[in-house]
Nucleic acid binder design. Structure first.
Lengths: 322, 322
DNA sequence: CTTTGGAAG
DNA sequence: CTTCGAAAG
């Protein structure tokens, strides 16, 4: 049942050759190492999988994890519910559940989730214009002090992309960052978003440290996707989007997974449904827990739950000793 | 497995009461006879089903059936193929198979049907403007003398609704007649169609007798649908559409099923997918084999294959001694 | 490849 | 309720 693979190399993949197709998001084979990498047909090399290690439940300074947050781009809440996503959530049982790409108006939400007693405090944001587009949600076991929607800029706040919850010791922000789209037709908008979103987070951070989670729609470095060479001109791995993420970190934030596992390759959170990408682990790390530096001492673990099915993204989970 | 019911009353249903809803196409219960027909909630009366009698394979004048034609509105050829519609067809094995609402461009046809060796002669007509709309097909074991598309009037021939095949002793016409639509927004067009289509058939009939089959999108008389009272203002049972069919018959044609079974109620070929209409046999007879009067002596049987699944219509089959 | 709402039935 | 193509990812 569980994917095999134990000894994933700790180094990023080597030379990526002959991109084939045109500008598709993932290359089909393109692992290009070893004797099987011949010129002709693709050789069906065994995929290099990634097995997330057991959860570490203490911080560096020895405090016990007391806060568990899960984030999942569900790619359509209703389909995801039908595919038993909520069963997995009940098993995982995080204190806070953050969802992206719900694609569902609040009035069309399935009863299975609106009636979930484990999470009495539920917050929904949907796209105001296009039904069934974008949308994020936050479900909490304990009630936040305050909850806000959007990032305070009219031009960004009509697509249901951000929910911010204030808790006593931190802000929790969940976000579904705009996709630059095929042909990068929305890259200019994305750059504006990145600037404004970073400003929003920096302002919050002045008041209280924050945890940002969600689908940030960028693979930061080459190690964060299977086929970096072939995707430099594709949405999610353009220099502009990568630079946006770098600038976010430079503003005083930390990529929790990369902080803990600086050299871990093949660890992805998204695989296109096309070309059996997930079966071959041809993926991207697009989903993150980003922390204010002040929260770093409380970080226990940052997990990638890549055996959980129900979407083209897998869930990620954060353990904090707060 | 097979639907029960043997003793369906030979009389049309009695008083239809309290229409409920607004102008939905089928009423939910509304059978309104017997002691269970009380004022309040619907009582879940057992549905009156219809079991088609065994095929009669000789004509009145004692000749053996030698031609078998099946007509089926498949409501989307690709979905119908996935639902094993072709398995049923292979079992039925008609000499000619006529399909309506294929909703499929010729280049998108599934290989399962384009490669079917039992039918070497295949003819396709699709909507020229809207992909995935309308469309009819005819598959033949033996090659027709000639095949034409449409009814020879520009204004009607862009939606892939008619194929005419000429055989030595008859024309075979398959048609998907335009639906008058919700709110009867296309009833005016339908009336024009009915006039022109009737003229087309009359012209053909002067040359050689014809068999017309397909989804004619009208229930002719009250006996031809479960809820006549409630549907007088709905597409498929307006006075105008019914009169169109009457005028067709007056032009020298015969409704083969009604000819053989003049009083058979509850015999339907279409049930809306909504409200479990098929399970309750709340249906309409919309699919017909209509014959030139000259072919009446050759009529053996006109069947309703209402156990065949895969569409919101069931197939119908004609046996002729030609 | 898969989700969604929209048109059509 | 179910089909389909479109937009989006």
């Amino acid at each position: 049942f569980q994917r095999a693979c134990v000894c994933a190399s700790r180094l990023p993949p080597g030379n990526m050759s002959k991109r084939g197709k045109k500008n598709e998001e993932v290359a089909d084979s393109d692992n290009g190492t070893g004797p099987a990498a011949k010129k002709g047909k693709k050789e069906a090399e065994p995929p290099i999988l990634y097995e997330d290690p057991p959860d570490k439940l203490t911080s560096k300074d020895g405090r016990a994890a007391g806060l568990k947050i899960t984030s999942w781009n569900v790619d359509g809440l209703r389909a995801w519910v039908k595919k038993k996503g909520l069963d997995w959530v009940r098993e995982e049982s995080p204190d806070v559940l953050c969802l992206q790409e719900t694609k569902c108006a609040e009035k069309a939400l399935p009863g299975e989730i609106t009636s979930m007693p484990e999470y009495p405090h539920k917050y929904w944001a949907g796209s105001e214009d296009k039904e069934g587009y974008s949308g994020v949600a936050m479900l909490c076991k304990t009630e936040p002090i305050n909850v806000t929607y959007g990032i305070g800029k009219e031009e960004h706040d009509k697509e249901g992309r951000v929910i911010t919850a204030e808790f006593p010791n931190y802000f929790l922000v969940t976000a579904y960052v705009p996709n630059a789209s095929r042909g990068l037709v929305r890259l200019d908008y994305r750059k504006t978003w990145d600037v404004d979103f970073r400003a929003y987070l920096s302002d919050l951070d002045k008041r209280k440290p924050l945890i940002l989670c969600g689908d940030l729609n960028v693979a930061h470095q080459e190690i964060d996707l299977k086929n970096p060479k072939g995707n430099r001109k594709n949405a999610g791995f353009t220099p502009e989007e990568r630079e946006g993420f770098t600038q976010l970190l430079d503003a005083g934030f930390v990529d929790s997974f990369r902080e803990l596992y600086p050299d871990q390759a093949y660890a992805y959170t998204f695989w296109t449904y096309m070309m059996n990408a997930r079966g071959k682990n041809v993926g991207w790390r697009l989903d993150y827990f980003v922390l204010s530096k002040a929260l770093l001492p409380s970080l226990c673990d940052s997990k990638i739950r890549n055996t959980a099915m129900g979407s083209d993204h897998c869930p990620i989970t954060l353990h904090m000793a707060v």
